[in-house]
Design a protein around this nucleic acid. Structure first.
Lengths: 137, 137
DNA sequence: TCAATATATCGATAATGCTCGATGCATGCC
DNA sequence: GGCATGCATCGAGCATTATCGATATATTGA
């Protein structure tokens, strides 16, 4: 009985996506997450809790929080403009953008040699709702 | 240069608290967290990001999310009533309640042999604000 | 075609975290 | 006092993750 025993598959289904775009930018979780009840409304089921925990885990890192806030402040940011402010190496920054993209929080678009990142606004709002925010928010 | 290099001390200062109450129930983070700007307002500083990540990390676990939702649904729950629904051993449940209490999300009160847990409502609202919810929320 | 650039991936390492059995500690009851 | 109970802590095992150097891939420009 290990942690998170009931995790559905949400990988390896990037279809209709240009080959140049990394998988991490394409595969959404698509797990009915946006229909789950709020945390304070009713006891969470195991599946809902796992889905929610996955997004929270993507946010539970200081580097990724700062990365997200930088993207939010400029509406669109190139990967190469993140290494400096974050104080991390290029592979590490790439790793963090991938984690955020896999969680559906960040959307990447390849333009030439550069990858431009922007927020997926619905995702944060949905998370706030799951944390007990009122519907209209 | 490890992760979270700039973490202020927020432990070992449980004063004026009955000896029978575990430290985890008493020490608040008390790090000006409630004054930080929202994630989407401006780039987060390292300290703010670390504080926020700590609370998010406390939530980024399926067992703890379900624990929190159980407490929220009943307004007050005894530790002994959590092992069953969570499917975890007593030490594990105790570990998770401690993590949530250290993050300021849960408040525990010892009554006789039992410990009763309830939500710290302000904390979730504050987290929602940091995630971009509008002030009134 | 070739060099330069931007990014993704690989492999390794160190740190962190979840879990549980064993144990310690405090409380209540007899 | 003696025993049972509820919870916290300890220690170990195992999995996950953050990080970076090295390398691979893709795009641009000459």
């Amino acid at each position: 009985m290990a942690k998170g025993g009931a995790e559905g598959g949400a990988k390896g289904m990037a279809r209709g996506v240009p080959k140049s775009v990394p998988k991490s930018m394409a595969d959404e979780l698509d797990s009915g997450w946006h229909c789950s009840p709020s945390l304070v409304e009713a006891p969470l089921g195991v599946q809902d809790a796992c889905d929610m925990a996955r997004v929270l885990a993507a946010l539970a890192d200081p580097v990724r929080l700062r990365l997200l806030s930088i993207v939010a402040s400029r509406s669109e940011v190139c990967s190469c403009d993140l290494e400096g402010p974050l104080g991390r190496s290029q592979p590490t920054v790439s790793h963090h953008t991938k984690v955020l993209a896999d969680a559906g929080l960040l959307i990447g678009e390849r333009r030439g040699r550069w990858t431009w990142w922007r927020l997926a606004p619905d995702r944060l709002a949905e998370l706030r709702r799951l944390l007990g925010a009122r519907p209209p928010d």
